[in-house]
Design a protein around this nucleic acid. Sequence first.
DNA 1: CAATTCATGCAATGGTATTGCATTGTTAGC
DNA 2: GCTAACAATGCAATACCATTGCATGAATTG
Lengths: 137, 137
Amino acid sequence: MNRIDAILQQKSVRITPMRQLVLKHFLQEDAVLGLNELEETFQKSDRITIYRTLKTFEEKGIIHSIQNGVSEVKYALCKEHCEEQHHIDRHPHFHCLVCGSIECLESVLLPPTILPQGYSASEIKMNIKGRCKKCQG
Amino acid sequence: MNRIDAILQQKSVRITPMRQLVLKHFLQEDAVLGLNELEETFQKSDRITIYRTLKTFEEKGIIHSIQNGVSEVKYALCKEHCEEQHHIDRHPHFHCLVCGSIECLESVLLPPTILPQGYSASEIKMNIKGRCKKCQG
DNA sequence: CAATTCATGCAATGGTATTGCATTGTTAGC
DNA sequence: GCTAACAATGCAATACCATTGCATGAATTG
């Protein structure tokens, strides 16, 4: 069995052509992608089906969502131990204000945050805006 | 001059009835508010005008925006030294998954984050989801 | 093989965010 | 004070993204 199918199976997602296609694309590109980009890439595919594929992937812990607050919701592969309904995004997301790119800063670990007495966290997300490596100077 | 007008003037925002009204409400409530709630509160006022008031306030550093990724954008007063185009939200935002409330955790300072070589940040936002104080147990 | 469950494709809708434009109100220079 | 310039407001309209309903087709299970 190939890598794509293995991942789908391991995450309890039924294997279909659409899902193979989308997952393959994420693995190949290793990029942050939104619905519009994917629709552009797979012009023959139905937008709604791609939408639901993303939703399914997110729910099953294959990809995680990134909200930059500007355009649409973006998605990137989970490289950590995400499972159904339980995402651990231990890295911040960087949004470059110059080139507009969005990336996962995998190398940066979210520092442990001490919550006030009585609060408990199930998800922590950090979004950073600024200039990326390519856009300095 | 009263407190409301003083703030508006200090932030270079022209004083108008609408702006006095909205700012007064934020100061009184000391809460996180969205456009819909404000529209509800000021039924006689035009939705778009409130919208633009919020945009102006955000731009001028009077309030800052909070995206919970679920509903509309929310806003809260800047209690730190925010200026035009330069927001420093040094606190995380907490979104309770039980009661739905959103609040600024003013008492929690964002830990210093070390970015990879070549990156520079102008804005850092941290959003936490979980159970708030009132919804434990 | 039949029944059920799930995925897909198309259409339609809901909601939030945003812009255009005409009008009114405010400021500033003369 | 008066007029020109500018900013704020109110109404209408739109753009875009997210989401759901439903009928059809495919896959799985007993």
